[in-house]
Amino acid sequence: MDVFVQHVVNGLALGGVYALLSLGLALVFSILGLINFAHGELLTLGGYAIYGGLAVLALPFGGAVVVAIIATAVAAMAMERVAFRPVRDASAASMLLTSFAVSALLQVVLQNAISPRGKAIVTPAFFKQAITISDLVVGSIQALSIVATAILLLLLMVFLRSTVLGLAMRAAAVDFRTTRLMGIHANAVVATAFALSGILAGVAALLWVAQSGSVRPLMGLVPVLKAFIAVILGGLGSLPGAVVGGFVLGFIEVFLRAYLPGAALEFREAIALLIVITILFFRPQGLLGRRVEAAR
């Protein structure tokens, strides 16, 4: 039983990171209809910002994290301004290809300007400790992941429910044109979506780097693919769906790693995807997605 609870904690921690990333993807998708594959590079940039904050600016770890979150938010907005705004009215395919271009460009720049190989990040000693709650031993990184995810999701929910800009984001996700009729500036909504996705990626970068202890130019690739799967699983276009999808995917991975017999262990990614496909077979609109309805 204790072991089971331990796996639940691990599932929450991993699922939380996926949830932050998939929520960032879903926020931008809900507004622009763009799957931003350069989202993974925001995670990478966040990681390098932490590295730079520590190694170059000699900041304390907390300071480097703040720098990284600001950096990813600014980078996300810059990405929108430079790369996506000019193709906003173009086809979905053009926007998708633009995001691949941004992704590839940032990878190459990081490889050439810094190093194609990874850089180690010295995480605080605290990260290697464990927290004991009665019988339960929780790694401090897991605890940090769960707490950070919970706080961030809560803040985002408050923003989306109780500020005019937040309401506008939810409205624009369904009907952008009518949202503009409310006097809401289209560019403000789009820029906010990117800024939020950047902040989420910045916090995800902290959690990812805390786990791996290093940064690499291609580190964003796998997480963004996982986040994309989580978005589809939860229901494309649904923000709560993206969060749920992230957690479900995290739980699937953790439980497969824990309970698969040794011989099957190396196929766990494939088995995880098989489970996702099975879910989508029965709920093609995703866990929380709505079936596409004709406009009322």
């Binding site: 005019v164 309401l167 506008a168 939810r170 409205a171 996700a173 369904v174 009907d175 044109r177 009518t178 949202t179 009729l181 409310m182 006097g183 809401i184 406009a295 009322r296």
Partner: peptide, 24 residues
């Protein structure tokens, strides 16, 4: 403009729709 087909925001409450109307 009150658009043809009403275009209320279906995922928002009545209060939230009205709040957005006053966004300016």
């Amino acid at each position: 403009l009150t658009p043809e087909g009403r275009h209320v925001f279906p995922n928002l409450s009545v209060d939230e729709n009205l709040a957005l109307g006053a966004a300016t």
